[in-house]
């Protein structure tokens, strides 16, 4: 056995350990969700269910969690996330075009402001925003939450999207202008198709922000029929803390869409957050 083989072997072994450490909690969640109750609480835990069952999923999906159907929560969550994506995507595209294509007074100020507001603790703002929403009579309204989510998704979306807009060669737009296209036409026929991948990445980011959000939904929503999936999960967890099979089934249903989206978008996300951190 030569040393280079040994080194490669130990590196790969370390890689496998990291992989297992990273995915194990999620696998354990999925595995618990498919286990019958006697296996969940057996004296010797099994890594995989010996007798897989969908009873917990059946329980969650068919209204066992609360008096309201699971599909209502799912609809609320999807609706919130999609509207947040559409509004913040549109506004971010406008602002990203402004900072990537124009040089104007306060441009730097605007960019610095975007950095600062990304750091504002949502946990602190929940108190005044609750008061505002209450005074506006928008407690229990998904619209109130959408507005808040747009606010929190927007700064990062702009930051991420401006790189994509800047990457579109300006000559293309100039060519369109020479051919007589107006600014609106140029925007829709030239810029929009070219930044579409960036828009997709940004949209998934906003989607995840809205989909995962807990504290505002928990504070603003009182009526059970308005709950989102995370609030449903917390409510169920708080009420029946020992029904781990059903809790894990509900967690699985909440988590898998996010993981799928995330794996799709992650590279762009890293580059958005730390872009340019290394410059020669």
């Amino acid at each position: 056995m030569n040393p280079s083989f040994f080194r490669r072997f130990s590196l790969n072994a370390a890689g496998v350990i990291v992989f297992i450490g990273a995915v194990f909690p999620v696998l354990w969640m999925v595995s618990t969700a498919f286990k019958p109750n006697d296996e969940i609480f057996s004296v010797t835990p099994h890594p995989v269910p010996f007798h897989p069952t969908v009873e917990h999923f059946d329980f969650v999906l068919n209204g066992g969690i609360a008096d309201v159907s699971f599909w209502t929560y799912l609809r609320n969550s999807v609706l919130l996330a999609i509207v947040t994506v559409l509004i913040s995507g549109f506004l971010a595209l406008l602002a990203a075009t402004a900072v990537a294509r124009y040089r104007f007074r306060f441009r730097t100020t605007f960019l610095i402001m975007l950095l600062v507001v990304q750091m504002v603790p949502a946990e602190a703002l929940v108190i005044p925003l609750f008061l505002d929403v209450k005074h506006l009579g928008m407690i229990d309204s998904l619209a109130g939450l959408i507005v808040v989510y747009v606010g929190f998704a927007l700064p990062f979306s702009i930051w991420m999207l401006r790189g994509f807009v800047a990457a579109v060669p300006k000559e293309l737009e100039e060519a369109a202008a020479i051919d007589g296209a107006g600014s609106i036409r140029t925007f829709f026929s030239v810029l929009l198709p070219l930044v579409a991948p960036g828009l997709v990445a940004t949209s998934i980011f906003s989607f995840i922000t809205a989909w995962n959000e807990f504290i505002f939904a928990y504070t603003f929503l009182d009526d059970q029929t308005k709950y989102t999936l995370p609030i449903m999960l917390q409510y169920f967890f708080g009420r029946s803390g020992n029904e781990w099979g059903s809790i894990m089934a509900a967690s699985t249903l909440l988590t898998l869409p996010v993981i799928a989206f995330f794996l799709f978008v992650q590279r762009r996300m890293v580059s958005g957050l730390t872009s340019g951190a290394v410059k020669g």
């Binding site: 992989f19 969640m29 995962n212 999960l233 917390q234 909440l254 988590t255 996010v258 993981i259 992650q266």
Partner: peptide, 13 residues
């Protein structure tokens, strides 16, 4: 890819 899965899990789950 595995490491991403840990990152992607929602805080509540």
């Amino acid at each position: 890819g595995g490491v991403m899965i840990a990152w992607a899990t929602p805080p509540i789950t």
